[in-house]
């Protein structure tokens, strides 16, 4: 029974990691940027969700607004910060991204205050039981939300013109251009989708914790980097698998290894161990 719950809780955490990290891997796959500020967009999504829900009373409306606004914000980050740095060494964009992330966290603190915000009325507090297994509705929302979002992303990548254009651009930008693919547009759409996913993850976490704080992005900022590396940098499927696996490993680690390692250390011991055996990550890129 305990093990069923541990695995389940691991998967819930893992799906949260997955929704955040998959956007990061989209960006990395296309542009080779370690986009730390992604976690800042995640936080922004969470703030917009809470503030609009409290103002209008409608959670769905708030989530919609959050994904749209943050999607556009992501495109702006690309246009204003990353685009001019594309032909620079990769660490330039990395440090710029870290700087932007610091700015974002500090702006949230100054504008919204350091105490964090909560929903005026707690969302999804019911308890769902399926046979012997029970979970909070917010947990279920996290799982279902992740499945819906990631299936949607999968379909988009496999079945649509954008998906084809994206994959072509990732594989060989010059070739893609010669086939008439607008690679610039692909980049913008890519940032929109990645950032909208971050916002959705932020909304889900806001509901789950009933707490949105300026620093809520700091753990995702580095842990999602670990996940996309585990998943084989730029490999969307690999990222999903790595996120879920890490969620479960952390769940077990917190209970059985907590006496000598903390949670973050567990994740990174796993990461380092994997990279020493498979330097290209669990799943090689593409």
């Amino acid at each position: 029974m305990l093990h069923v719950e541990l695995v389940l809780q691991g998967l819930i955490n893992g799906s949260m990691y997955a929704v955040i990290a998959v956007g990061l891997t989209l960006v990395y796959g296309l542009l080779r940027i370690l986009h730390v500020a992604h976690a800042g967009l995640f936080t922004l999504g969470a703030y917009i969700t809470v503030l609009i829900t409290n103002a209008t009373g409608s959670l769905p409306l708030a989530v919609l607004a959050a994904t749209l606004v943050v999607g556009v914000a992501g495109m702006l980050v690309y246009r204003l910060l990353y685009e001019p740095l594309l032909d620079r060494p990769p660490y330039v964009a990395l440090i710029a991204s870290i700087g932007l992330f610091i700015c974002m966290e500090e702006s949230y603190r100054i504008v919204f205050g350091p105490y964090g915000n909560s929903f005026d009325t707690m969302q999804l507090t019911q308890r769902i039981t399926i046979g012997p297994i029970g979970m909070a509705a917010a947990d279920a929302a996290m799982l279902v939300g992740a499945v819906v979002l990631l299936t949607g992303l999968g379909l988009l990548m496999k079945r649509t013109r954008f998906g084809i254009a994206w994959r072509a651009t990732v594989t060989d930008p010059a070739m893609a251009r010669s086939f008439g693919i607008d690679t610039i547009k692909v980049r913008y759409v890519n940032f929109f989708i990645a950032s909208a996913l971050a916002a959705a993850a932020g909304a889900l976490v806001a509901v789950l914790n009933n707490l949105v704080e300026p620093t809520m992005g700091s753990v995702p900022s580095y842990k999602s980097l670990a996940i996309i590396v585990l998943g084989g940098l730029g490999n969307v499927g690999g990222t999903l698998a790595a996120a879920l696996l890490l969620g479960v490993i952390e769940a077990y680690g917190t209970i059985y290894a907590g006496a000598f390692l903390d949670r973050d250390a567990i994740a990174f011991v796993f990461l380092i161990a994997v990279l020493m055996v498979r330097p290209q990550g669990l799943f090689a890129a593409r």
């Binding site: 719950e5 819930i12 789950l208 707490l211 209970i255």
Partner: peptide, 20 residues
């Protein structure tokens, strides 16, 4: 006896263990 990190907000595994 369990511990969690200061930035932790999700305690699913701990809760499962406490319940047990």
């Amino acid at each position: 006896e369990h511990t969690f990190a200061m930035p932790d907000r999700q305690f699913g595994p701990l809760v499962a263990q406490v319940k047990a």
